[in-house]
Design a protein around this nucleic acid. Structure first.
Lengths: 237, 237
DNA sequence: ATACTTAATGGACAATCGTCCATTAGGGAA
DNA sequence: TTCCCTAATGGACGATTGTCCATTAAGTAT
């Protein structure tokens, strides 16, 4: 902050004119500010200071602060579901492993981080009165729900349980994970990902003993994820 | 808003000088504003307009806006736990009924309302970067956790289950309820309290079949609450 | 009545908010 | 080079923020 005058002729970024990079820098700065100081502190002044850009950029690229915040929420949401998709893309695995892969992914360092949880809850807290943000704070992402539902329907069929139970298991799992996120937010240092994962598995074992009673199910989900990750890294990206 | 000028000589409140009433009016106006328009819109101007009080009152009674918001969070939190206590004060009931009483109370119209859920999430969203608010957004209220824990320990003992399971059931139940609250926030019109309650019971039945398998357990918890409520009304207050 | 205490008022104030625009300057095309 | 388009700048602007205080007025004691 205090060395701005002394560095006024320093080159800020390699490419001098890069609208897409500037746009992205503004979104990143917005999310960083929210994570660090909350939505209230995410003023235009604070954001452009962090992005090392000038005042007019917000209006130029987004037409206003509101649209910038909405764009940040959109990107954050898309980032979550994109990562979640990659970590749970194991279509041929047994249904219980697929379920646990979602649980493991949701509780992983990638998706459940100090930065992420603060941003997520800041957005959700503002969603009720901010339509732009509200679009992207729903956990009702249909693809994820459907992925969970089809797995549980398969499980319910094999265990001779009703379809209603599969539906309950779907929403119950999502609710449990939501609760774990809140637990993480309010008591970060005492939170254990393994404990949370095992807790969810135990609850699911109560509903479907045959599929979830074995603690190894969790391990399979984790190794499945790692294997997928290594496959993916061989393919580049 | 537009009729303020036309009612400027109307008596605002019966007692003209009532510091405690003014203090309370400011807190109520703060919570109402947050519920209606979010924390961002909870400015001093908006709050004192709603409370029909003058600008200086915030500084006079709270020393600043920050303390007012913190006081509002404190009162909101205390209101929740106070109501929860009254609705679950059935010490002699069987443990499963006591657990379901907490579940039923948490999902009741009294504690889970459109107004309440918006305020709750607004506060939680700001808690990470607002120490004053953070004090009162924890679900870790020890009395409630302890109430749940002792009931589950009793249940676990009777079913021959481990103490670890009782601990998991305690935190799992709280997590499920947290998830249900989020579900209510994001999809209020499609949310069913009965469905949510039955879902929690089903999950608990998976852990402790003997105590929670019978759907009547929920009904007992509800009637227990009503009976307690009617007893209470006979005693006044 | 008079004096005293204090709840309550409402405007002054500097600081900050988000928006906007005249201007500068970078990067190709001519 | 010269020209043109536009990314980028940074200050001006009015509106609004929260804080504070001189003043008014209500209620009580003398």
């Amino acid at each position: 902050m205090k060395d701005i005058t002394s560095t006024k002729h320093r080159r800020r970024r390699p490419a001098k004119r890069d609208p897409e990079a500037s746009r992205q820098a503004l979104i990143d700065a917005t999310l960083d500010t929210i994570a660090e100081s909350g939505l209230t502190e995410a003023s235009v002044t604070n954001i452009i200071h962090r992005a090392e850009l000038s005042r007019g950029m917000v209006h130029l690229h987004f037409g206003g602060k509101d649209n910038l915040v909405t764009a940040a929420a959109k990107q954050f949401s898309e980032h979550y579901y994109s990562k979640m998709d990659r970590m749970t893309d194991i279509g041929d695995a047994p249904p219980a492993v697929r379920v646990m892969a979602i649980v493991v992914a949701d509780l992983s360092e990638t998706l459940l981080s100090p930065r992420g949880i603060k941003i997520w809850h800041a957005f959700r807290g503002a969603a009720s009165s901010h339509p732009g943000i509200a679009q992207y704070t729903s956990t009702q992402d249909e693809r994820l729900v459907q992925k969970l539902r089809s797995a549980f329907e398969e499980i319910a069929g094999e265990e001779g349980a009703s379809a209603t139970l599969a539906e309950d298991a779907t929403h119950g799992t999502l609710a449990l994970l939501e609760g774990m996120w809140v637990h993480y937010l309010t008591d970060m240092e005492n939170f254990s990902r393994v404990w949370a994962m095992e807790l969810v598995r135990r609850f699911l074992a109560g509903l479907f003993p045959i599929h979830f009673l074995d603690p190894a199910t969790s391990a399979k989900a984790i190794s499945g994820r790692c294997q997928t990750a290594s496959n993916r890294s061989q393919l580049g990206q």
